[in-house]
C-alpha cells in the first residue's frame, strides 16, 4: 500500500507534488495548533481544578475551626458560669416581690422574639457569577493571538 502511494506520488507532476505536500503540512499545522490550544485549555482546567480543591480544603478547615469556636463560646457562656459571674458581681435572682410592674398608658407589650423567628424563611440569595462562553474557537484563537502579540509590543522598536 505504502509503495503504491509513493509510486503514485513519484508519477505525479512536480507542481502537483508541491501542492499535495503543502496541503499535508497545512493540515498538520492546523492539527498542531488545535493540539496546542487543547493543551493550553487543559492546563487551565487543571489549574482551576487544583484551585477548587485547595479552596475546598480551606472550607473544610474553616468549618472545623468554626465548630470549635462555637463550642468554646457555648462552653464559656453556660448558664451556670454566667450565673456564677453575676453572683460574683453582687447580682441575685429576682423574686416576684422585688419586681415592680408599672402601667404605662398606651404601651403595647411585645413578647420576646425567639431566634430565627418570622414567617417562613426564604433562602439567602447568593450571587454566584459563572463564566459564560460565547466565542467560537476561531474567535478565541484570534483573541489569544492579539494577547500574545501585545505581549511583545514593547520589543517592536
Amino acid at each position: 500500500m505504502a509503495n503504491f502511494v509513493v509510486q503514485a506520488y513519484s508519477n505525479t507532476p512536480r507542481r502537483k507534488q508541491i501542492r499535495i505536500l503543502g496541503s499535508f503540512f497545512l493540515a498538520l499545522l492546523i492539527l498542531a495548533v488545535l493540539l496546542v490550544s487543547y493543551l493550553i485549555v487543559s492546563s487551565r482546567v487543571v489549574s482551576l481544578g487544583r484551585g477548587i480543591q485547595k479552596l475546598k480544603n480551606e472550607i473544610d478547615e474553616l468549618e472545623y475551626e468554626n465548630v470549635t469556636l462555637q463550642d468554646e463560646i457555648a462552653s464559656a457562656t453556660t448558664i451556670s458560669k454566667v450565673e456564677a459571674m453575676a453572683q460574683e458581681q453582687g447580682f441575685h435572682p429576682a423574686s416576684s416581690g422585688e419586681i415592680l410592674h408599672v402601667v404605662v398608658p398606651g404601651y403595647k407589650r411585645s413578647r420576646s422574639i425567639p431566634v430565627n423567628a418570622g414567617e417562613e424563611s426564604r433562602p439567602a440569595v447568593i450571587d454566584v457569577s459563572i463564566a459564560e462562553y460565547h466565542q467560537t474557537l476561531l474567535e478565541w484563537v484570534m483573541q489569544e493571538t492579539v494577547v500574545f502579540s501585545d505581549a511583545f509590543k514593547g520589543f517592536e522598536q
Binding site: V67, Q70, D71, A74, I79, S112, P114, V115
Partner: peptide, 10 residues
C-alpha cells in the same frame, strides 16, 4: 432563645 444545648466540636 438560641442558647446552644447540643453542638459539635473538633
Amino acid at each position: 432563645n438560641g442558647k446552644l444545648f447540643a453542638g459539635n466540636t473538633t
